[in-house]
Design a protein around this nucleic acid. Structure first.
Lengths: 335, 335
DNA sequence: CCGCGTCGTGAGAGCGCTCTCACGTACTGT
DNA sequence: ACAGTACGTGAGAGCGCTCTCACGACGCGG
C-alpha cells in the first residue's frame, strides 16, 4: 500500500527545526550539541521512526563494515557442527564491540568453489574469516589473490597461501592425550586418527607418535576414521582386530571416541579397565559415554575470537602473523 | 603502506576512454553497448582491479540487500546446534539466487536482548529471520514494533506478536511417533517431553496425548527433560521409577532419546523388546544408538527455506501468513 | 532529400549521509 | 572594557554509483 519513503535526516531536521548536521550529531552521539536541541531531535526521530540509512553512511565513511565468515559446508555426517557453532559464537563475540557485521557465506566444499570465489571477488565485504581449512584450495588461493584481508581458522592443509591463520596446538594436544595413556601404564597404544587430508588430523597423529617415541613404545597401531561416529566405530573395530593386545587408544575426535568406547565395550573390553581411551574436542559428545570421556580441549570459540583480533589488525592495515594456541587435557573417566 | 584509493567507476571510465555511464552499463551487463566499448571497459576493469562499491550501489537502488538471521545463543548444553546449522544452510540456499546477504546476529537469550534490540532498530538490514523462538519476547516484540519485515522459524511461544512464522507440525509429529508405539502393541506409553516453555515441546506432548486418548490409553506418564543428553537420562530414570510397567516411550528429541535408550539398557530393559522408543529430530544422534533410533523427521532446512520464501514476499511488500509443514516418521530399530 | 525512429553514448542530477569549515554567541581572562 | 577562546550550529561539498534525459549518428521509408 503506502510505499512512503523512509524518513531521512533531512526530514528529521525539518521536524526538529535544526539542520541536517545537528541531527547527524545527535544520531552519532556527538557530545557538542545543546541539550534542548538534542531532545528536539530525539523526539523527532522517534516520532518519524527514523532509521539511518546504512548504505549512505557506509558510502561516506569508508570504514570497513562487514566481514564474510566463510563456512565450508561440512558434510552432514561429519557432525563437526557443534564446533562450527562454537566458532561462530566466538566470532560474534569478537566482533561485538566493533561495527562489523558478520556475513555468513556457506558453501558445499568443492561444489560451490566457483560461486564462492565470484562472491568473494564481488567486494561485498571488507574482510573474511574462513572456518576450517577443509576447503579446496580454490577459495583460499582466490582469497589471497584478491587481496581481501583474510584470516583462516585452523591451519590450512597443503602449502600455505600466505594467509595468516589461528590454530590450536594439535600436535601438543595429541601428545598430551598420549602422554596420559603412557602415564597410566598403557604399553600398547593405538590411535584412531582423522582424515589424512586435514591438518588437524595429521598434527594430532604426529603428537601421538612423538609421545610414543619419547616413551619408547611402538607407534604402528594406526587406523583412520572420517570423524563420524560410524567411521570411528569401524576404525576401532579394525584397530582391535589388528592389535588384540591394545590397552590404550587415542581417538582424534570425541564423536569417534564415543563410538569407539561402545565398540570396545561391545567387544567385552572394560573402559578404562582393559583399554583406556582419550578423545579429542571436549564436545558434548564427550559426556554421552559412560564413563565420561577423558578428552582434549579444543576451544573453537577461543580460536575464533583470536581470529577476529587478527582480522581487525589486518583491516587497520597492520600485518599479522599466524598464531598457535595451547590446549590441555580434560579429565574424564576413560583414561 | 600504500593506502591507494580503490579504483572507482570514474577511473575505469578515464582509462577506457568512455563515460561513467557506459562503464556502469558494462558492469551491469546492459546489452546496449557497442562491442568495442564493452571490451575496452572490461579490459580497464581487470587492469585496474575495479570492484564496484556496494554501499554506493545500495544507496541509489533502494533494493533490499541483506537480512539479519537472529540466532538466540543456545545454551551450550542444549546441543540443538546441528539443527541450527541445518537451518542456516537452508537459509543460505534459499537466499542463494538473490542478492541478499545473510548477516548473522547471535545473542545469548535473555542477557543480550537489549543489545539485540538496539541493533535491530539500527536498520542494518532490510529484514530478519529469527531462529527458534526460545528468545524472550523482548526481541520479537521489538521486531514487530519496528516494522522490520520478519519471519520466525518455529512458532513463537506465548501470544503471537503478529509476526508470521514457519513451523513443522510438531503436534502431528508427536502423534505419529506415538501412533507407531500404539501400533506395535505398546499399552503403557510414557513420554520424555521437552522444556515447558518451548512451543515445539508443548506441541509434541499434545500430539502424544492425542494419540493415547484416541487409543484409549493412559496419558499420565510424563517427565520433562531439557533437550540435553543428561536431562534425557535423568528424565528417563524418573519415568521408569514411576512407571515400572512402561513398554513404550516417546522422547521429544534424539539426543534425549539416545540417553534414554542407554538408560533403559542399563536398567536391564531390552530396546525395543521390553520398551520401544521413538525419538524426534532425525539428527545424527539418532544413528549413535544400537539399534538406530526410530525417530521423527524435523527438517530444519526445509523450514528455513520456506522462511526465505516468505521473507522475500514480505520484502516485496506482499503480505504472508504463517505456514505449518508436515512431518513423517523415520524408520529405525527402536520401535 | 527530409523526417522519423533507433541506437549508443555522455552529462548531470541525485541517493542519504558525514565532515570540514566558517560563523555566530557566550564565556573567560586581563 | 576588549580580545581571545570555547562551543554549538548551519551550509555545503562530496562519497561512488545508477538512471533519466538529451543528443548525435545512423538507417529507413516516403
Amino acid at each position: 500500500m503506502s510505499t512512503r519513503r523512509a524518513p531521512t535526516l533531512e526530514d528529521v531536521a525539518a521536524r526538529a527545526g535544526v539542520s541536517r548536521a545537528t541531527v547527524s550529531r545527535v544520531v552519532n552521539a556527538d557530545p557538542r550539541v545543546r541539550a534542548t536541541a538534542r531532545e528536539a531531535v530525539s523526539r523527532a526521530v522517534t516520532e518519524l521512526g527514523y532509521r539511518p540509512n546504512r548504505a549512505a553512511r557506509a558510502l561516506v565513511k569508508r570504514a570497513p563494515d562487514s566481514v564474510a565468515v566463510v563456512v565450508p559446508e561440512t558434510d552432514q555426517r561429519v557432525f563437526s557442527d557443534p564446533v562450527i557453532m562454537e566458532m561462530l559464537r566466538g566470532i560474534s563475540e569478537g566482533l561485538e564491540e566493533t561495527p562489523l557485521q558478520m556475513v555468513l557465506v556457506l558453501g558445499r566444499a568443492g561444489r560451490d568453489t566457483d560461486r564462492l570465489e565470484r562472491w568473494l571477488r564481488g567486494g561485498h565485504t571488507d574482510g573474511a574469516i574462513v572456518l576450517s581449512a577443509h576447503l579446496d584450495d580454490g577459495v583460499t588461493s582466490a582469497l589471497s589473490e584478491i587481496g581481501l584481508p583474510t584470516v583462516m581458522i585452523g591451519r590450512p592443509p597443503g602449502p600455505e597461501q600466505g594467509l595468516p591463520f589461528v590454530d590450536l596446538d594439535n600436535v601438543d594436544g595429541g601428545r598430551q592425550a598420549t602422554d596420559r595413556l603412557v602415564a597410566r601404564g598403557c604399553r600398547r597404544i593405538g590411535t584412531v586418527a582423522g582424515p589424512v587430508d586435514m591438518a588437524a588430523s595429521r598434527d594430532r597423529l604426529a603428537g601421538w607418535r612423538e609421545s610414543l617415541d619419547a616413551a619408547g613404545l611402538a607407534d604402528d597401531a594406526v587406523e583412520h576414521g572420517d570423524f563420524s561416529s560410524e567411521g570411528g566405530r569401524l576404525a576401532m573395530r579394525r584397530l582391535l582386530a589388528a592389535h588384540r593386545d591394545l590397552d590404550g587408544v587415542f581417538v582424534a575426535s570425541d564423536l569417534m571416541a564415543a563410538a569407539a568406547v561402545s565398540e570396545l565395550q561391545a567387544a567385552g573390553r572394560a573402559v578404562p579397565g582393559d583399554v583406556a581411551v582419550v578423545g579429542y574436542d571436549d564436545s558434548p559428545a564427550a559426556q554421552l559415554t559412560v564413563p565420561r570421556l577423558t578428552t582434549v580441549a579444543n576451544p573453537g570459540d577461543r580460536m575464533a575470537r583470536e581470529a577476529t583480533v587478527m582480522l581487525r589488525e589486518l583491516l587497520a592495515g597492520r600485518p599479522v602473523s599466524s598464531r598457535v594456541l595451547p590446549t590441555h587435557l580434560v579429565e574424564g573417566g576413560t583414561a
